[in-house]
């Protein structure tokens, strides 16, 4: 498993397209967003933090997960890995570990910059829990989406609904909160995760109330993984 992760890391840094999608795009949009928010305060800081996290996990982690898995399947690398002594869980962990690690590092850097520029989060621990649960959800959704994706090119289409959807939802919840349409916003993938991120950054909400928000996010993890277990394919369709 560590050797697969190392191999993936080498490939990420050799493949400029992946590097750009994964690192530059989310980082550049985050920088732009922080700059914009400094000029005209559009949302409170918690909202900004949540939107930044989703920029990175949706555009970086989620899209890269789907593209990577589709590409490794298409060139039969997944089949090759399954010809070794390593189990399926180990293979997926090895493949997704580097992109997950890079995402977490990226989120940490961006949120630190936001904290330094505009003021830090109220509850760092809760923030970490919120980020981790969001990452888990996007990984699960990525696995499920990869099951419906035939090729890396196809991933540009198949990732759009969830990538745009979660980004829009995080913006919507970030801007307008969950006073209205509460249940609807919280149950959609990313809604309660955004609210949790906002609460963790802004503070002022009892921790127990915030922790309840983990339930829909973790529910989506379960749904996504169950879906992935049914539709994920290890070999290209013949």
């Amino acid at each position: 498993m560590p050797s697969i992760a190392l191999g993936e890391l080498i490939q990420i840094f050799r493949n400029r397209l992946v590097l750009v999608t994964m690192l530059v795009l989310p980082a550049a949009s985050s920088a732009f967003y922080i700059y914009l928010n400094q000029q005209f305060t559009i949302v409170d800081l918690g909202g900004v933090a949540a939107i930044l996290v989703f920029l990175v996990v949706a555009m970086g982690l989620y899209a890269t997960t789907v593209t990577t898995l589709a590409s490794r399947r298409q060139n039969l690398f997944l089949k090759r890995l399954r010809s070794t002594a390593l189990g399926d869980a180990g293979i997926l962990t090895g493949l997704l570990l580097p992109v997950t690690g890079i995402t977490l590092a990226q989120v940490a850097v961006i949120l630190t910059v936001l904290g330094v520029v505009a003021g830090g989060p109220a509850n760092v621990l809760l923030l970490a829990v919120a980020v981790l649960s969001t990452v888990a959800m996007m990984l699960g959704l990525g696995l499920a989406t990869a099951g419906l994706t035939n090729s890396p090119e196809h991933a540009q289409v198949t990732t759009l609904p969830i990538m745009i959807g979660t980004l829009a939802l995080s913006g919507w919840v970030g801007f307008t909160g969950t006073e209205e349409l509460t249940l609807f916003k919280r149950l959609l993938p990313g809604g309660s995760a955004t609210e949790l991120l906002v609460n963790a950054w802004n503070g002022g909400t009892p921790v127990m109330d915030s922790l309840v928000l983990l339930v829909p996010t973790l529910g989506w993890v379960v749904v996504a993984v169950a879906l992935a277990a049914r539709i994920f394919r290890w070999e290209p369709r013949r």
């Binding site: 039969l76 890995l81 010809s83």
Partner: peptide
């Protein structure tokens, strides 16, 4: 699998890895 070597009909190696890296990766697994 530790006792079995498999040569597949189609390659299935990562195009961006070198020959040495590919053998080391699959070999270690």
């Amino acid at each position: 699998r530790p006792r079995t070597g498999i040569m597949l009909q189609e390659s299935g190696f990562s195009p961006d890895l070198t020959v040495r890296e590919s053998v080391r990766l699959i070999g270690s697994l």
